[in-house]
Amino acid sequence: QVNIAPGSLDKALNQYAAHSGFTLSVDASLTRGKQSNGLHGDYDVESGLQQLLDGSGLQVKPLGNNSWTLEP
Rank of each mutant, 00 (worst) to 15 (best):
P6R: 09
W68Y: 14
G55Q: 05
T69L: 14
L52K: 00
G7S: 07
N37S: 10
D44T: 12
P62F: 15
G48T: 04
K34W: 08
D42W: 15
L52S: 01
D54K: 15
G41R: 02
Q50S: 10
N14M: 15
L13K: 02
V60F: 11
L9M: 05
D44K: 05
E46Q: 13
D10I: 13
E46W: 15
A18V: 11
G64V: 03
V45S: 04
N65D: 10
H19F: 14
D27N: 09
L58R: 01
K11I: 12
L52N: 00
F22Y: 02
D10K: 07
D42P: 08
N3D: 11
G57I: 04
V2D: 02
S29Y: 11
Q50I: 13
Q51V: 13
S20L: 15
T23I: 12
L9P: 01
S8W: 12
Q35E: 09
N14G: 10
Y16I: 01
L58I: 06
N66G: 10
Q1T: 13
H19Q: 14
L30S: 03
T69P: 00
S20C: 15
L24K: 02
D27K: 07
D44L: 06
P72Y: 11
S36E: 01
D54P: 05
V60E: 03
S8E: 10
D27M: 07
A12W: 04
D27I: 08
Q51N: 07
W68I: 04
I4K: 04
L39H: 00
K11H: 13
Y16C: 07
N3R: 11
N66I: 02
K11M: 13
L63H: 07
L39Y: 03
S47P: 04
G48I: 05
A28W: 14
A5R: 09
S36M: 01
L30E: 03
A28S: 11
Q35I: 13
Q59L: 11
G7V: 05
Q59A: 11
Q50P: 00
H40N: 12
N3E: 09
T23P: 02
V2I: 11
K61G: 03
G55T: 02
G21S: 06
L24Y: 09
D54G: 09
D54S: 14
E71P: 01
L70W: 01
G41Q: 02
A5V: 07
E71G: 06
W68Q: 00
L30M: 08
G33S: 06
V2E: 03
K34H: 08
T23M: 09
S36F: 04
L39M: 06
N66V: 00
Q35C: 15
D44E: 07
A18E: 10
A18P: 00
L9H: 02
L70G: 02
L63K: 07
E71V: 15
N3A: 09
K11T: 12
S29E: 13
P72G: 07
D10V: 08
G57D: 06
L52Y: 00
V2K: 01
V2P: 05
Q59Y: 11
E71T: 11
D54W: 14
P72I: 12
Q51R: 14
A18R: 11
W68N: 00
S8Y: 08
V60W: 08
P6L: 04
S67I: 14
V2C: 11
G38K: 02
K61C: 10
S36A: 06
G57E: 04
A12H: 02
L52F: 01
G64D: 06
W68E: 01
S20E: 11
Q1D: 08
D42N: 14
S67E: 12
N37L: 12
T23F: 11
Y16S: 00
G33T: 04
D42V: 15
D10N: 07
N14V: 13
G48N: 04
A5D: 09
A12C: 15
L70A: 06
S67Y: 09
N37M: 12
S56E: 01
Q59K: 14
S25P: 02
